[in-house]
């Protein structure tokens, strides 16, 4: 059956709309990145190229604060992503390979609910929860909250990957004398790995980037990078904020790139 193929590029206005969207999306980021290289004290006046604000992030008056915040952010992101990915992998295995069980649809809803709920609601609820059980706010509350909201983000790529793996592979493994556990570790897990890496990176970025929930559940004086940046901005935007933002942006792009490369090598025979 020969259906006519419509090339979207032939529609009038395609190029203009595309450029407009790209401009709206990326112009602010480019402005921030460019002005992070400004020599000026001002954030609006260009006075020439300089890396002084990058140096300022590491050595300036606020550098100690940023360093602690950055370390907190990365430690929390690494642990939260690891725990969330492990839980998500197990959840995906149960959901995709568990056959039909009661409340299966409800379980899926429960796992993905945090994606639907406005973040501010989750933030308030988490805060109330910690308060009501008398849990002292600090790094640990941030970590627990991050693990909780990272699970659905890790779950989605993992379960998507798992759904594309036919269960005959595990059956073949068991037919060839592998126990259920061996079939899982030797066959299913390696096949799921690209999904697991994607899920991990996504959870990591989401944790690293989170502001609203973190801001609610963090203890006084405990900062992550986003909350530290927000705190600094309240005292007026200095170019060092642009430098630190650009570094975060670069890091995020790197993560996305790795995630993309992982999924791409997998498709090659």
């Amino acid at each position: 059956m020969a259906t006519r193929r419509y090339d979207i590029k032939s529609y009038s206005g395609f190029l203009q709309i595309t450029l407009l969207c790209l401009f709206v999306l990326y112009a602010p980021l480019i402005v921030v990145a460019v002005y992070s290289l400004n020599a000026s004290e001002s954030i609006a006046v260009w006075e020439g190229f300089s890396l002084r604000w990058y140096a300022d992030v590491f050595t300036g008056s606020e550098s100690a604060k940023f360093k602690v915040a950055a370390r907190n952010s990365f430690v929390i992101a690494i642990i939260a992503a690891s725990v969330a990915t492990t839980i998500a992998t197990l959840a995906a295995t149960a959901m995709v390979r568990g056959g039909k069980f009661r409340l299966r649809a409800w379980s899926f809803g429960l796992i993905s609910l945090p994606l639907m709920v406005p973040e501010i609601v989750t933030a308030v609820a988490t805060l109330i929860f910690f308060n009501s059980i008398g849990f002292e706010r600090g790094l640990l509350t941030i970590l627990l909250a991050h693990i909780a909201f990272c699970i659905p983000f890790a779950y989605l790529p993992i379960s998507a990957r798992m759904q594309s793996i036919e269960d005959t592979y595990e059956q073949a493994a068991q037919d060839l004398y592998a126990t259920k556990r061996q079939a899982f570790t030797k066959i299913l897990l390696p096949l799921m790995l690209p999904g697991i890496i994607s899920g991990y990176l996504l959870a990591f970025i989401i944790s690293l980037d989170d502001f609203i929930i973190t801001n609610f559940v963090k203890g006084a004086g405990v900062e992550t990078l986003p909350t530290a940046i927000f705190g600094a901005v309240k005292q007026g935007i200095k170019p060092n904020i642009m430098a630190i933002s650009t570094m975060l942006l670069g890091f995020s792009i790197l993560m996305v790139l790795i995630s993309y490369l992982v999924s791409r090598t997998d498709k090659k025979p």
Binding site: T168, A172, Q174, D175, L176, Y177, K180, L191
Partner: peptide
Amino acid sequence: LPPHKRPVNTVFQNYALFPH
């Protein structure tokens, strides 16, 4: 007996060769 304890092997319809 579970499949891994039976001394029979299967050639699957879609072969199910381990891709990795």
